[in-house]
Design a protein around this nucleic acid. Structure first.
Length: 561
RNA sequence: GCGCCCGUAGCUCAGCUGGAUAGAGCAUCAGCUUCCGAAGCUGAGGGUCGGGGGUUCGAAUCCCUCCGGGCGCGCCA
């Protein structure tokens, strides 16, 4: 709908250019947007305001010329010039009838676009180390990353979801030692308890399972507890397997599936780390100092140079990170989007600097990134402190169990990811009207209910007749709902383009509101068959948009509540 | 100290690639069910968009500065 209008305007601008009203090189960066108020029509553009200067004329005059150059279009009922030179487009009912038909024709595909068509895109998110259960912050990462992936896929991208984890570093040693201490009967606080150990109760569970000889399956691996508390290698393997399995189960329960699990250790195994060092040295952005090998990241905007190989010969985390992102590029992802906590923001600048230093033609904005801010958890009116070492924190599993998958996902996705948010567990779990997810789901279920009613009354909805009789829908609520529905494709596109999945959540609330209001104002199931068919057609279109939008959020669209 | 993010109604948050009277939910108050599900609808009150400058025809939005909060700034990950 919007695209058609935009094309119309572009064509008119071309005419003005060839007529000499506009200079041939006048750039056409103008905005076409939905109006806030219907008094200003359906869409407005600032094209005349934006192009007045290069045209060396005043905006109102240019607006008039532009309007005069517009080709007649069946969808546009009226065009007005307003204020300093806005051009307001009033669409006729036919435009919305066409759109409503499109919704029913396209079904689950309604709202898809091609703005990212054919681009091999990788979204990396969560990427938690296997040293403990996932907490609410990972939940936010999972919700944001997964919704982004869905929105990008709906925009035509070929999306791969990837989870990267460290399976070999210092923290894993720490995990192994913690588990071993537990297996030997020590506990946090005891004299022989390791200083930096993980104190959570789950370590005890891992140790017990190990001593029992439990069999753990995950990602095509099978690991069996060796029972021997002195075998640190076996303990390490088992603990990683155990926690990976738990994390995967939590993510599955959250409705998130990954295509690729990438192990940091593989970067050493296949020589990628060495290759990265070699390339960096070769391109001359490194130097040795104090026995360490440094990368001159300051050449690429970092505020200080970074050590890549420590004087003891081991690598800092920074180098495998670069090697990992290099592998993304080499695996053919034209776009890589990294979703991570804002506390890791600094590492991104380094990774990007590292990629540039490789001098391999990797774009400067590779990878793109989306940051999420911290989540404060409230329970019983008090903040729940998150501390992995202390072992007291709200796990993602707790939330899914207490709050439900749908509400948890919705809450975590509904806020812009780069603002901090408060997650009030009591509020989220309340099955009341405080809870926006139910409001939206209810709107969907409500249409299902109408369809059931139709059936119970022995009335058949004639889809084609309904679409043919859309002209019968002429009240305010009906036109408002048609407008809301027609916005859906624009919202999907904006969410994918700006990497802002929360837009979908806000939109769905507005769509649900339009549906609820309509439902209350008018009876859908009326005796007049034409009117009934038409109203049900509109309701079903709304249902489809709701279902499609909820699907992008990974939230279910129930047929009844 | 430096960098990034944030500061919008009592509370939780949208709006931010500049646009027309600043929005929603909750909370408060007042209404709405002989009727397809009231997990709903309608209405009211509530704002120096943290403060101050600047750019512009136009600023919640861009720039500067100050205040207040968060997170980073290791030969830790």
């Amino acid at each position: 709908m919007k695209e058609q209008l935009r094309t119309l305007i572009e064509q008119a601008l071309d005419r003005l250019r060839s007529a000499g009203t506009l200079p041939a090189d006048a750039s056409a960066a103008f905005v076409l947007e939905r109006t806030k108020s219907r008094e200003h029509g359906d869409f407005a553009t600032n094209a005349a305001l934006a192009l007045a200067k290069p045209a060396r004329t005043n905006p109102r005059a240019l607006a008039q010329a532009l309007v005069a150059a517009l080709a007649p279009n069946a969808l546009v009922e009226k065009v007005e010039i307003a204020g300093p030179g806005f051009i307001n487009f009033f669409l006729g009912p036919a435009a919305y009838h066409q759109e409503t038909r499109r919704v029913l024709d396209e079904g689950v595909r309604y709202g898809c676009n091609t703005t990212a068509a054919g681009r091999r895109t990788q979204v990396e998110f969560v990427s938690a180390n296997p040293t403990g259960p996932l907490h609410i912050g990972h939940g936010r990462a999972a919700a944001v990353g997964d919704c982004l992936a869905r929105a990008l896929a709906a925009s035509g991208a070929e999306v791969t979801r990837e989870f990267y984890y460290n399976d070999a570093g210092v923290q894993i040693e720490n995990l192994a030692r913690s588990t071993q201490a537990r297996a030997k009967g020590s506990k946090p606080g005891a004299a022989d308890w390791p200083a930096d150990a993980y104190n959570g109760d789950y370590i005890g569970d891992v140790a017990e399972a190990y001593l029992r000889g439990d069999r753990v399956e995950f990602e095509n691996h099978v690991v069996t507890g060796a029972k021997n508390p002195d075998d640190i290698d076996a303990i390490r393997q088992f603990a990683v397997a155990y926690l990976r399995r738990e994390q995967n189960a939590d993510l599955a329960a959250f409705g998130v599936k990954f295509d690729v699990y990438f192990l940091e250790s593989s970067l050493y195994g296949d020589g990628k780390v060495e290759e990265t060092v070699r390339e960096l040295v070769k391109h001359g952005h490194t130097y040795e100092e104090g026995g360490a090998l440094w990368l001159r990241t300051t050449d690429f905007g970092d505020d200080k140079d970074r050590v890549m190989r420590k004087s003891d010969g081991t690598f800092t985390y920074f180098l495998p990170d670069v090697a990992y992102h290099l592998s993304k590029w080499q695996r053919g992802y034209q776009r890589a989007i990294t979703e991570l906590g804002a506390d890791h923001h600094g590492s991104l600048a380094r990774v990007k600097a590292g990629l540039q230093a490789l001098d391999m033609g990797i774009p400067k904005d590779y990878p793109e990134y989306v940051l999420h801010q911290m989540v404060t958890v409230m329970r019983g009116g008090e903040e729940v402190k998150i501390s992995k070492r202390a072992g007291s924190y709200v796990t993602l599993r707790d939330l899914i169990d207490e709050v439900g998958r749908d509400a948890t996902r919705f809450f975590l996705i509904a806020r812009k990811s780069d603002s901090q948010m408060v997650f009030d567990i009591d509020l989220a779990r309340s099955q009341s009207n405080d809870n926006p997810v139910y409001y939206i789901q209810y709107a969907h279920a409500r249409v299902c209910s109408v369809l059931r009613q139709l059936d119970e009354r022995g009335l058949k909805w004639n889809r084609d007749n309904g679409l043919a009789k859309l002209a019968r829908l002429d009240n305010e609520h009906e036109s408002a709902l048609m407008v809301e529905i027609s916005r859906y494709p624009e919202v999907v596109e904006a969410a994918a383009l700006n990497l802002e999945p929360h837009l979908i959540a806000s939109y769905l609330r507005e769509l649900a509101n339009a549906l609820h209001a309509y439902y209350h104002a008018h009876q859908f199931i009326v005796d007049d068959a034409d009117l009934r068919d038409a109203r049900v057609a509109l309701a079903v279109a709304a249902q489809q948009a709701l279902a499609n939008g909820l699907d992008l959020l990974g939230v279910s669209a129930p047929e009844q509540m």
